[in-house]
Simulated scan of single mutants.
Amino acid sequence: MKKRYIIGAGSAVVIAALYLINASWAATPPETTPQLLSHRGLYQHYRREGLTRDTCTADRILPPTHGYLENTLPSMQAAFDLGADGVEIDVHPTTDGDFVVFHDWTLDCRTDGKGITRQHSMAELKALDIGYGYTADGGKTYPFRGQFKGRMPSLAEVLTAFPDKHILINIKSNDSREADLLDAWLKAHPEAHPERLSVFAGERPTQRLAVLRPDLRPTGKAKLKSCALGYMALGWSGYMPKACRHTTMYLPTNYAWLAWGYPNRLQTRFADAGSYVWLIGDVNKRKGGMPSLNTPEELSKVPKSWRMGIVTDTIEVIGPLSMPPAQ
């Protein structure tokens, strides 16, 4: 009987210690302002049923409610005007040593061009009509055809147009050489202010950038998984796994309760480790791509003390809700 009491008392002490070490209420969140990241800027939404990696989304858009297309300068400006603090863009290297901002691996879906995006020069890509393939009625009408000729931006154009905004660069490959290309490009363009950039990429370029450019807080699916599993296993102690240092973490709101110390202590631990956390949407509800917080109901799940990032696909909805009231 005495042994049972000792074991019970010991267990209670351990539980109490774990609670206090990870108590969110006992931690002060970082003294920062929550950041809102607009995925692709302001863009045309599309039907998501049956999506695969190669699905053309331009020919399944919903009836347009605005005139913006993703990954263009006007769409990014519109996102910032609606309250975004940063935007996510997709990049590909060109055959003449530059980087172009465009989502798809090939040109056939959205543009009047053909072939693999990265197998073209910047001049060739600049000659295309990037609104050519968009239709909401099965090809009966093409509302953006002819309006976006020459509107595919270079990375330099984006970073020059928005010099003080956070830009998340999505490298659309798993080729480690693209990390070297981006590193060389940034060295040649100090006006890009790389300190405000971050990178999402495949495993190989992520690993390479962690060596070349840790200041970009590079991450990818493999590193996210490693950080998540490591933190779930050891985060209770306050220890930050290597995979969680100097990186970017994307935390689904439906699994946030599993993250030790969420929300306040989690934020301080990642901030102290030189990392940043973005809240994203329910991973069980999204088919294709990163889930985001897109409705008022989803936004209401964000704790009031959250001081890091929020990712959205509907900046037109979430942006105004997140803006401070006019004085």
Rank of each mutant, 00 (worst) to 15 (best):
D137N: 14
G138W: 08
G138H: 11
G139E: 10
G139V: 06
P143Y: 05
P143E: 09
R145L: 02
G146W: 04
Q147V: 00
F148M: 09
F148C: 00
M152H: 04
M152S: 00
P153H: 10
S154K: 01
A156E: 15
V158K: 04
L159P: 01
L159C: 04
T160L: 02
T160A: 13
P163R: 13
P163H: 11
I167Y: 13
I167F: 12
I167Q: 13
I169N: 12
I169W: 13
I169R: 15
I169G: 06
K172W: 04
N174L: 06
N174F: 04
E178V: 02
A179V: 09
A179I: 10
D180M: 07
L182Q: 13
L182Y: 09
D183I: 03
H189A: 07
P190T: 05
P190F: 02
E191N: 09
H193W: 01
H193R: 11
R196P: 01
L197Q: 13
S198Y: 02
V199D: 04
F200S: 08
F200I: 13
A201R: 03
E203R: 15
E203G: 06
P205I: 08
T206V: 15
T206Y: 08
T206M: 10
T206Q: 13
T206I: 10
R208W: 07
L209G: 02
V211T: 14
R213N: 13
P214E: 01
L216Y: 12
L216S: 14
T219W: 03
K223L: 13
L224F: 12
L224K: 08
K225H: 09
S226Q: 11
S226Y: 00
A228Q: 15
A228E: 15
L229A: 09
L229F: 09
G230V: 06
Y231V: 01
A233E: 07
L234T: 15
L234W: 12
G235L: 00
G235P: 01
G238D: 09
Y239D: 10
A243N: 02
C244F: 01
R245I: 00
T247P: 01
T248P: 03
T248I: 04
M249A: 14
Y250C: 07
